[in-house]
Structures are given as structure tokens and as C-alpha cells.
Amino acid sequence: MDKKPRLGEFLKMRRSQLQPADVGLPDFGERRRVPGLRRDELAQLAGVGLSYYTRLEQGLSLNASPEVLDALARALGLDEVERAHLHDLARASRRTGTRRRPAPERAGDTTRQLLGAFGDAPAILLGRRSDVLAWNRTGHALFAGHLDPHIPDQPDRRPNTARLVFLDAHTRDLYVDWPKKARDVVGKLRLAAGQHPDDPRLAELIGELTMKSSEFAMMWSEHRVRKWDLATYRMHHPLVGHMQLNLQTLNVPQAEGQRLVVATADAGTASAAALTLLAQASVPTVRQASRAEAAESTRFGADSRR
């Protein structure tokens, strides 16, 4: 990812999305040559010099102080998540020298124990790029029952929720309000790109989605960021039909960027009944369980001989 202009791109896009009336400036009905606010208007609102702001937006100045960034955030009407993203972009633009490649991601033993403790509640473990690092039985059945349940254990084949939402027909059909889910996914990736600017695999993912999905490219160009801890989605599962589910996100301690996503439904609703039915339908039969145990035993024996 080319880091130096990204702060300027964010400022320019957010400036273009504001009208004078949005920030209490007179319009006078004049025909404007640029969409949204002009540079001089934003600089005035933030209390910074026009020439300095112009250099900042063009990527020629990389030393914006936290106070200046906060002033720009207030002028642009950014919320707390967007303000933090602005600071992340500024830090990335100031970095010099050799960057350390991010360490490979894996699901820790205690995190897997926690995943199993959710029982029949669908739960998945996501990494900083939204790769699926692990899931429980019902998490697999809900979000990707059409995929091999053991695929998260293969780092080079792990499903990625952003890739699934934009490029996988099954996942697209799963969300009744697909555009809402898609924008949430893009907003989370924007945050990740600001927090992990030196992650080449994240850059590859964003490039792939931009090339393969015009919808992703359009949403990505809007520079919207989102960080949701609780979101409600209407879903249509091929096995149990319509559900309205609450997806809650829990950060994993001592595992930067990893988060658990757990799906629940309001008690006593048809959606809760559908989740129960899905949990029952995903219980392996005795024959399937025996095969799985045999495969696991074979794999353990092979590992112990290495």
C-alpha cells in the first residue's frame, strides 16, 4: 500500500462530502467548481493555514501534530472511530526505514477453548484481515456451511469474510440487506489498513477486491470507516430460512487484531427457534463423527512422527 498519499486522500474525500451548509458556512447560491468544501474553507474551519493544509492534503507535509489532526477532525465532523483512523493514517505517513512484516496469525489454544465454550451459539474467530482463523460447529454452519469445516486450519486456504461477502454467491444471498453488510465490511477493512499499513497480504486482498468487484471499488473510494461491536442483520439461511440475528464482536486479549464474532437471536422469537434448528441440523451423525475422529487420530499420529 502506498502510504504517503493516503492521509491526503482521506482528507480530500471527506472534504468533498461536506457542503457549506453542513458546517454553518454561507453558500450564496454560487456555482461551485469543486464538490463539497473548498480547501480554504476547511482550513479556516480548522484554524490552520491554507498553504499548510494544501501541503498536507497533497502528501508534501508529513508532520501534522495531534492538535492539528484533532482540529481537522472537528472541522470535518468526524466521529471517534474516524478521528482515530485519521491519526492512524498520519502515523503511517511518518514512518521511515525498514518495516517489520506482521507475524502469521493463528488461533491460540485458550481462544479455541473460549470458542467452544459458546456451545450452540454460532461463533467465529477473525484475524486482522478478516480471515477466518477458527469457528465452532454452528459458526461454520451459519456463515459458510458450503465450505470445508476444516479449511480455517489451512493458512493458505482460509476463507476471508470480505472476499466471501463480495465474491461468493452463497454469502451474498445470506444477507437480506447485502449493501449494509458490504459497507460494514469495507469500513472495517479501512480501519485495518490504517492500523496495519505494512501488511502486504492485506494490501493484496484490497487490490484483489478492487479489481474483481466494482461494488467494492466504489465503496472503498468513499473512505468510510466503521467499527461495530454490535450489529443486527436480517439473514436468509438455505437450511432454516429467515432470521434476524445480533452479531457481537469481542476483542481477543493479547492477540492484536483478533476478534470473536458471536451470533444470537432475541429470546422467544422465530429467529431463536431457527438458530436452535440450525444447531441441531449441524450435529454430525455417529458415522460422520467416527470418520472425523479417525481423521484426527491419523493427523495426530503423523504430527507426532515429525
Score class of each variant (00 low, 15 high):
residue 7 L to P: 01
residue 8 G to T: 03
residue 23 V to E: 03
residue 23 V to G: 02
residue 24 G to D: 06
residue 25 L to Q: 03
residue 28 F to K: 12
residue 29 G to D: 11
residue 32 R to I: 07
residue 34 V to Y: 02
residue 34 V to R: 09
residue 36 G to Y: 01
residue 39 R to N: 04
residue 40 D to Q: 12
residue 47 G to C: 02
residue 47 G to L: 03
residue 48 V to Q: 04
residue 51 S to R: 13
residue 53 Y to P: 00
residue 54 T to N: 01
residue 56 L to Q: 00
residue 57 E to R: 01
residue 60 L to F: 10
residue 61 S to D: 15
residue 78 L to C: 06
residue 78 L to M: 12
residue 78 L to I: 07
residue 81 V to Y: 02
residue 82 E to Y: 00
residue 82 E to Q: 10
residue 84 A to R: 14
residue 85 H to W: 00
residue 89 L to V: 02
residue 98 T to Y: 05
residue 102 P to A: 04
residue 103 A to M: 07
residue 104 P to H: 05
residue 106 R to E: 15
residue 107 A to S: 02
residue 112 R to G: 08
residue 113 Q to P: 07
residue 115 L to A: 03
residue 115 L to E: 01
residue 117 A to E: 07
residue 118 F to Y: 14
residue 121 A to C: 11
residue 122 P to N: 02
residue 124 I to Y: 08
residue 127 G to K: 02
residue 127 G to V: 02
residue 129 R to S: 09
residue 132 V to G: 09
residue 132 V to S: 06
residue 140 H to Y: 06
residue 146 H to C: 06
residue 147 L to G: 04
residue 149 P to L: 08
residue 152 P to F: 04
residue 153 D to L: 12
residue 156 D to F: 08
residue 159 P to K: 04
residue 162 A to C: 11
residue 165 V to R: 01
residue 166 F to T: 04
residue 167 L to Q: 10
residue 168 D to E: 12
residue 171 T to S: 14
residue 174 L to P: 01
residue 175 Y to H: 10
residue 180 K to V: 13
residue 180 K to L: 15
residue 183 R to P: 04
residue 184 D to L: 08
residue 184 D to I: 02
residue 185 V to L: 07
residue 188 K to P: 00
residue 188 K to T: 10
residue 194 G to M: 01
residue 196 H to F: 13
residue 201 R to D: 15
residue 202 L to G: 03
residue 203 A to K: 11
residue 205 L to V: 09
residue 207 G to F: 03
residue 208 E to H: 05
residue 208 E to R: 08
residue 209 L to N: 02
residue 212 K to L: 15
residue 212 K to E: 13
residue 217 A to D: 05
residue 218 M to V: 13
residue 219 M to P: 04
residue 219 M to R: 10
residue 222 E to F: 02
residue 222 E to P: 00
residue 222 E to S: 08
residue 224 R to L: 05
residue 224 R to M: 13
residue 225 V to F: 00
residue 226 R to E: 05
residue 229 D to L: 13
residue 229 D to C: 11
residue 230 L to K: 14
residue 230 L to V: 15
residue 230 L to I: 15
residue 233 Y to C: 11
residue 235 M to D: 00
residue 235 M to I: 07
residue 239 L to K: 12
residue 240 V to N: 08
residue 243 M to K: 05
residue 252 V to D: 00
residue 255 A to F: 01
residue 259 R to V: 10
residue 264 T to F: 11
residue 266 D to E: 14
residue 267 A to F: 07
residue 268 G to N: 03
residue 268 G to Q: 00
residue 270 A to H: 06
residue 273 A to H: 08
residue 275 L to E: 00
residue 277 L to K: 12
residue 277 L to Q: 13
residue 284 P to Y: 05
residue 285 T to L: 12
residue 288 Q to V: 11
residue 288 Q to G: 11
residue 291 R to V: 15
residue 294 A to I: 09
residue 297 S to A: 15
residue 298 T to Y: 14
residue 300 F to K: 12
